[in-house]
């Protein structure tokens, strides 16, 4: 049964209080590697948000109408990952054909997204928490926006720090982790507003 939470609460909570990166650690790989430039980070954030909303909506329909009736629960991982891979492929081809401008901007990120764990993660959270359709869509939108916000913040900070003199060894991933840790601490401040599990 769907939990009795207002979809709007889910939207806000998934951006701030249970941010995909800062409290669920999902999508870290591309978050760390594509955050050196603010502009590229914006592009990736946009692409992730778009794919998240589309895949979660489709996966909800697939789960409710294809997996649940014949009780194919043990196949759900394979089905979800296939849906994600196929959708990203179709999106890339469709964008290339009909929206070349957007494709030039987001195209290079799309293949990266198939293996972004945030996408599969949001789908699995949606299944575990029994969200209904509207809740799932807003949850995925919030998660995408939260991911986008976090990668943009990190990219902005890293751009400013690019010329800083740092101790050896801290440059690169170690620094990103420490910055992210401080960001996560700051985001704990939001947790008083409301929480979703």
């Amino acid at each position: 049964m769907a939990p009795n939470i207002s979809p709007l609460v889910i939207l806000i909570a998934s951006i701030f209080t249970s941010n995909m990166i800062l409290s669920n650690f999902l999508g870290m790989c591309s978050y760390l590697s594509v955050s050196t430039e603010y502009k590229t980070a914006t592009g990736l954030g946009m692409a992730v948000t778009l794919v998240l909303v589309l895949t979660t909506a489709i996966n909800w329909l697939v789960y409710t109408f294809i997996i649940v009736p014949p009780e194919l629960y043990y196949l759900q991982y394979i089905i979800f990952i296939m849906v994600i891979a196929a959708l990203v492929q179709i999106l890339e081809m469709g964008m290339d054909r009909y929206m070349p401008d957007l494709h030039a901007k987001l195209g290079i990120f799309l293949p990266l997204i198939t293996v972004n764990c945030a996408i599969l993660g949001v789908t699995l959270f949606m299944v575990i928490r029994h969200y209904n359709f509207i809740q799932s869509v807003l949850f995925s939108l919030g998660s995408g926006l939260g991911w986008w916000l976090a990668i943009n913040m990190l990219a902005a900070i890293r751009e400013k720090l690019a010329s800083a003199k740092l101790p050896p060894g801290v440059k690169g991933p170690a620094l990103s982790f420490i910055i992210t840790g401080i960001m996560a601490m700051a985001f704990i401040g939001f947790s008083g507003i409301f929480t979703i599990q």
Binding site: L22, S23, F25, P167, P168, G169, V170, G172, P173, A174, L175, S176, F177, I178, T180, G181, I182, A184, M185, I188
Partner: peptide, 26 residues
């Protein structure tokens, strides 16, 4: 309590990577 919250994970892994890559650089 901070240790069981998300930020600590970032700090600990970050420091470990820092230590290891500083050693490798040396």
């Amino acid at each position: 309590t901070i240790m069981i919250m998300p930020p600590a994970a970032f700090f600990i892994i970050g420091s470990m990577i820092w230590f290891i890559s500083a050693r490798a650089a040396r």
